[in-house]
Nucleic acid binder design. Structure first.
Lengths: 217, 217
DNA sequence: TAGATTGTTAATCGATTAACAATC
DNA sequence: TAGATTGTTAATCGATTAACAATC
């Protein structure tokens, strides 16, 4: 809409952004517990952070608190939700309906995280037609047509490593602007203006291995 | 064994540790491609890092390179594997055989990441007895007995948020030393000498939402 | 030996913490 | 008003990058 003011925060560092979802979760929790007011100090104790960091983080986006009072939980929750864009309902498709893909399709609450799952694709004939939630698995070769018709913005990749680079390329051509990448390939940042979240569960497990061995030896 | 020298690297910062699995993956890849020698500069280009950082990182653990030559891929891969402890085969159990739990049980290559999956537990009667890989899902109330008998060191939590804190407590009492936590609860660091890897897939998705909205507005 | 590339120290940059004046 | 707690600036700390002498 013309003239609509969309606050964007270009200068904010990734470390701050990555903490926002965690703030959001803790605030949701407080809200559920009927806590309506919280100071940075109280929140810092809950979250294992410094109060200073919390105030610093929030002030990247504006003065959401009130001196002498603290923060209003409901208002702050709303603000962070807006900053993250959780009301946007971006259209997302999932490619690869194997174990992990299906688990994510069934398990993840897309609606509360800014997304709307509108398609699931696989190349395996036996899976095509299988119902998952409100959807039915489609043939991956319908991808181009589907994207032209429905213009999803985001793709979740639950495909083997080898297939990732080529498929990502194709999807960018079909208009995809972001990837949630579970394939074991490090989706490169060659693309300008394409968002990528690489999720490497294996890396997390290896890190745990290091930590365990640090404790046990 | 008495007198065995176990190199531990207490002083190394978490940011360096978290990069090790990624180095490991890229080196594996080079090995598969029959590359046996690589300089920090070449590797930095592959990985989107600075050569300086790579040298700095590796030198936290020792001088694995050779001036004028670079690094031997196979040797370096082995060293990083050792540092991470990928040969340890720590015994791990998985609790919660829902969509996500099953996907992880079936999909994850534990063996190559330092672990050995020795048990899967759920409380739902219909799931108990179901075969998964080389295992069969057990009743969660057998957990204590199982832990006393087999002494697993690590537990994977694929359980609802509400059940996480209490179950984690119990597991610590049963001797568990580390958690790979997929429940939406932030497993606290109250415990000394317990390793925790919290995996918040929802946080990752919300971060992607922010990034997308930054691109699209 | 000359060229290449490491290991390592020093410089820079960014992120976190501390402090306190502003203000509810 | 007095007490509390923010917003914000300054100080500290840690992580990354640059530079170069050591050495293969």
């Amino acid at each position: 809409m013309e003239g609509e003011i969309v606050a964007r925060y270009e200068g904010v560092s990734p470390s701050v952004i990555r903490r926002l979802p965690r703030y959001y979760r803790f605030l949701e929790d407080l809200q559920k517990k009927d806590v309506h007011r919280i100071s940075s100090r109280e929140l810092s104790q809950l979250m294992n952070l410094t109060a200073s960091q919390i105030r610093q983080d929030l002030n990247c986006f504006g003065g959401f608190g009130q001196q002498g009072y603290g923060y209003n939980v409901d208002a702050l929750l709303g603000e962070i939700g807006n900053i993250l864009g959780l009301h946007k309902g971006y259209k997302v498709i999932l490619i690869g309906a194997g174990n992990l893909g299906l688990a994510i399709a069934k398990h993840m609450s897309f609606e509360t995280k800014g997304f709307n799952l509108i398609g699931i694709f696989d190349k395996q004939k036996e899976l095509i037609g299988m119902p998952v939630r409100h959807l039915v698995i489609s043939d991956v070769n319908r991808l181009e047509n589907f994207c032209k018709t429905f213009s999803p913005q985001v793709a979740i990749l639950c495909i083997p490593r080898e297939e990732a680079p080529e498929l990502a390329d194709r999807l960018v051509n079909y208009g995809i602007k972001g990837f949630w990448n579970f394939s074991h390939y490090d989706l490169a940042m060659d693309y300008q203006d394409i968002a990528v979240e690489n999720v490497h569960l294996g890396d997390s497990l290896m890190t745990l291995c290091y930590e365990i061995s640090e404790i046990l030896e």
